[in-house]
Amino acid sequence: MILHITFRALWPAVEITPLDGDEFVHCSDPGTVHLPANRLFAGRTDLLLLEVDPARLGVPLRWEPGDPPIPGGPWFPHVYGPIPAAAVVEAHDFQPGPDGTFELPSALAQQ
């Protein structure tokens, strides 16, 4: 599974499309999702973490350096095209801890 962070108000949707100016949909894996969450969304309480089945995408998935790249840093799954709603197998509430930072939700950590 790969993971995509979105705003609660944007889900459910027919599909998830790349952000304006991006050629792919940014995703993470369970071991890296806290990195973009903390860099981009620290303290936000209006997020969902979508669990996406790569076998249901129907568009290319590539593992690439982060954006911006970190020398020797982790690679992230980038989906080159829209993610259909049928590829999302579960939506998890994604709340920060008391200090405003994110960790992988316990429901996903147990998988």
Rank of each mutant, 00 (worst) to 15 (best):
M1H: 06
M1S: 06
I2F: 04
L3W: 02
H4F: 04
H4C: 07
I5V: 12
T6I: 02
T6P: 11
T6G: 12
R8H: 10
R8G: 02
L10M: 07
W11A: 03
W11Q: 08
P12F: 06
P12M: 07
V14K: 14
E15W: 04
E15L: 08
D20A: 15
D22V: 11
E23C: 13
E23M: 12
E23A: 15
V25C: 11
H26I: 10
H26P: 15
S28F: 01
S28Y: 00
S28R: 00
P30D: 08
T32R: 01
T32S: 12
V33C: 06
H34V: 02
L35A: 03
A37C: 09
A37H: 01
N38I: 05
N38W: 01
N38Y: 01
N38D: 06
R39V: 11
F41C: 10
A42D: 08
G43A: 08
T45F: 00
D46W: 08
L47Y: 06
L48G: 01
L48E: 03
L49P: 03
L49C: 09
L50Y: 07
E51K: 05
E51D: 13
V52I: 15
V52R: 01
D53K: 02
D53R: 03
P54Y: 09
P54V: 07
A55E: 13
L57D: 03
L57Q: 02
G58F: 09
G58W: 10
G58T: 06
V59K: 10
P60R: 10
P60I: 04
W63C: 12
E64F: 08
P65N: 05
P68W: 01
P71I: 00
G72R: 02
W75H: 13
F76E: 02
P77Y: 01
P77K: 00
H78T: 03
V79P: 04
V79H: 02
V79S: 00
V79A: 03
Y80H: 15
G81T: 07
G81W: 03
P82D: 04
I83N: 00
I83D: 00
P84M: 07
A85T: 05
A87G: 07
A87Y: 00
V88T: 02
V88G: 00
V88L: 08
V89Y: 09
V89E: 10
V89F: 11
V89A: 08
E90Y: 14
D93A: 12
Q95Y: 01
Q95M: 08
Q95R: 07
P96N: 06
G97L: 09
G100M: 10
G100K: 13
G100L: 05
T101V: 09
T101M: 12
F102W: 03
L104Y: 03
L104Q: 00
S106F: 09
A109D: 15
A109W: 12
A109R: 15
Q110S: 15
Q111T: 15
